[in-house]
Design a protein around this nucleic acid. Structure first.
Length: 575
RNA sequence: GGCGGGGUAGCUCAGUGGUAGAGCAGGGGACUCAUAAGCCCUUGGUCGCCGGUUCGAAUCCGGCCCCCGCUACCA
């Protein structure tokens, strides 16, 4: 199959938030990356020219302090932390097209250029800031502090001494963008999702916007602020930066990664290709910065706002928000050890609703793994391949023709229940698939990953029921005794089951990229996509009933997802 | 406090006027291709509380209780 010219392909650029590089990541941090990776793979397999960006946020007073505690330079410290992230991402099969670090040289140039543009546009000004500063949380309002015998302290970090800072800092004129933001929300009603998050952000904007500070005079571990108080360039003759100009603070550093990652400002052609981003996947804690600050910052620089921001919730463990500092978190590396890379990805995205907070536990993860992957899908593949070997000598049978509504692009009616009831046994699976694949695609496009999986596995259940309804072992006995009709029907039933396995294996590939080729290999079918989901024909073509190759042989059956013993595994990993 | 969303089976949730549902977990059964998996049947709920509208309310209205989200500058 010839490659579709890039120009004719849709391009899709998506990002995750960059992670704060101060410790090994927990599942609650990687969860977002796993979800975004599934979306990225979905687009690659569909044939979209896809770019997926993840990375780490490495500047801050807090990082510098942590490094100092360890007797390390900040750079050495973050290098060490970032390696932990990359190791965890590798184990989970995350496939970024670039892993960006805010310490990358091009990102430094990018952030500085954004500051220059805001300055040139008259959107930043020098202001005075004075107040308590918590190294872990930033500036704190007096109402947010507690005072006791030991003095004034941050309620969330009582052991960390507060600093009193008096600084001349640069401020961004966010207040000037209120009207434009409201208009943007009105003209692009789907740009912030889920909808209830959009409404929250809208309410915030309507409440009035204040300017925010974008520089720190005292902090040294950060991107040099490129402009002096008098407006002149802070760059010195030797190319270094005047320390007196301070450093860029948080959002004019971290958020900028999204445009650095597609060539800003060094590669205008690349930037023109990829910007604006199609999707930012972020957590609810930073929603405001992405859906209010960020578009205003971009507009100030003469750039477009991203097309969509998806806001997911938090993971809860034992009733509390999962977090490293609380000590209640799951270790993704341990999950991969126990469930495999795909198993860990699957249970995470199946058990956690992508549009809200979710309670998880190691126990429910294990149950889900056994129920869905070992018992339902893994066993379906296993019993199908075993029967083809046993009854048909390993010759892979073809699927029956698609049923009444089983066209490639899904059903042409929405009266699904009635259609299914009227469908004769031979067309049941193809018809059920037509509805499934349509629903699956809709859920994927809507970022409802957990519902997309549920849709797919509803079809797996359909296939398992089909086995018991048709009883291929009975047909095989009859065929053995010379019944030609039984032999024909046996081939048809097993052909449909092979097809069901092929379709589910392919459709589930964004979630289980390592297992998909193994599924098809057992069916004796080549897997046409690369390790990151690129290459191969558009997924929709392969997801049509009957689109697989004809003839050929299946391989030996071998369990794809070994069943786990609940008690033993729970004892090993639960905390 | 303000605005918004919820309280339905042991767990996670669907269900917005017409005899209470799904998945998982629990119990039983028939089968045997299969990872003792799958399939069938089944236990289980005064649908947060009180009142109202209606022939009829989980579903509409009023009141109350409880939970959660947002309510500014964390990296």
């Amino acid at each position: 199959m010839a490659d579709t010219p890039v120009a004719a392909r849709r391009r899709y650029y998506l990002t995750t938030a960059i992670a704060y590089a101060n410790s090994a990541p927990g599942l609650h941090t990687l969860y977002e990356v796993i979800g975004a990776d599934a979306i990225a793979r979905w687009h690659r397999m569909r044939g979209d020219e896809t770019r997926f960006l993840t990375g780490t946020d490495e500047h801050s007073v807090n990082i510098a302090m942590k490094a100092a505690e360890r007797g390390m330079t900040p750079r050495a410290f973050v290098d060490e932390q970032v390696a932990l992230f990359q190791r965890a991402e590798d184990l989970l099969g995350i496939s970024p097209d670039r892993f960006i670090r805010t310490t990358d040289p091009d990102h430094v140039r990018s952030a500085q250029e954004m500051v220059r543009r805001a300055h040139a546009n008259g959107d930043i000004y020098q202001g005075h800031y004075e107040g308590y500063y918590c190294p872990n949380e930033g500036f704190k309002a007096p109402s947010d502090l507690v005072e006791d015998a030991a003095g004034v302290r941050c309620p969330n970090h009582p052991d960390v001494p507060l600093q009193w800072l008096t600084e001349e800092n640069w401020f961004f004129r966010l207040s000037a963008y209120q009207e434009r933001l409201l208009r943007h929300y009105e003209e692009h009603p789907d740009w912030v999702q889920p909808e209830y998050r959009r409404n929250e952000m809208l309410g915030f904007i309507r409440g009035g916007l204040e300017d925010f500070s974008i520089s720190r005079a005292g902090a040294t571990w950060g991107i040099p602020f490129p402009i002096r108080a008098d407006g002149s360039s802070a760059q010195l003759p030797d190319g270094s930066w005047d320390p007196a100009a301070g450093t860029i603070y948080v959002w004019y550093d971290a958020l900028i990664n999204y445009i650095t990652g597609v060539g800003f400002p060094d590669d205008p052609a690349m930037f023109a290709t990829w910007w604006p981003a199609d999707l930012h996947v972020i957590g609810k804690d930073i929603a405001r910065f992405h859906t209010i600050f960020w578009p205003a910052m971009l507009w100030s620089a003469g750039l477009e706002a991203p097309r969509r921001v998806w806001i997911h919730g938090w993971l809860h463990l034992q009733g509390e928000r999962m977090s490293k500092s609380r000590g209640n978190f799951l270790d993704p590396v341990a999950m991969v050890d126990a469930l495999g890379s795909d198993g860990a990805r699957y249970v995470t995205l199946r058990e956690v609703a992508f549009d809200r907070d979710a309670d998880v536990s190691w126990d429910t993860f294990l149950r889900r793994y056994n129920a869905d992957l070992a018992n339902d899908f893994g066993n379906l593949v296993n019993r199908t391949v075993a029967m083809v070997n046993r009854y048909l000598g390993g010759q892979r049978p073809d699927p029956s023709p698609a049923g009444p509504t089983g066209g490639a692009m899904g059903p042409d009616t929405d009266d699904d229940a009635a259609t299914l009831e009227r469908t004769p046994g031979s067309a049941l699976l193809s018809t059920a698939w037509a509805f499934t694949v349509l629903d699956y695609a809709t859920k994927m496009e809507g970022c409802l990953l957990h519902e997309a999986i549920a849709s797919l596995f509803g079809f797996v259940g359909e296939a398992n029921r089909y086995v018991d309804a048709e009883q291929p072992w009975v047909l095989a006995r009859e065929a053995q005794a010379g019944a030609a009709e039984a032999a024909t029907r046996l081939r048809g039933v097993l052909g449909d089951l092979v097809e069901a396995c092929r379709l589910v294996g392919l459709a589930a590939a964004p979630f289980m990229p390592q297992s998909a080729p193994r599924v098809l290999a057992q069916l004796g079918i080549d897997y046409p996509y690369g390790a990151d989901g690129n290459g191969g024909p558009p997924l929709e073509e392969l997801l049509a009933w009957g689109a697989g190759p004809r003839g050929g042989r299946v391989a030996e059956a071998s369990p794809l997802f070994p069943r786990l013993e609940l008690d033993a595994e729970t004892a090993a990993v639960a905390r």
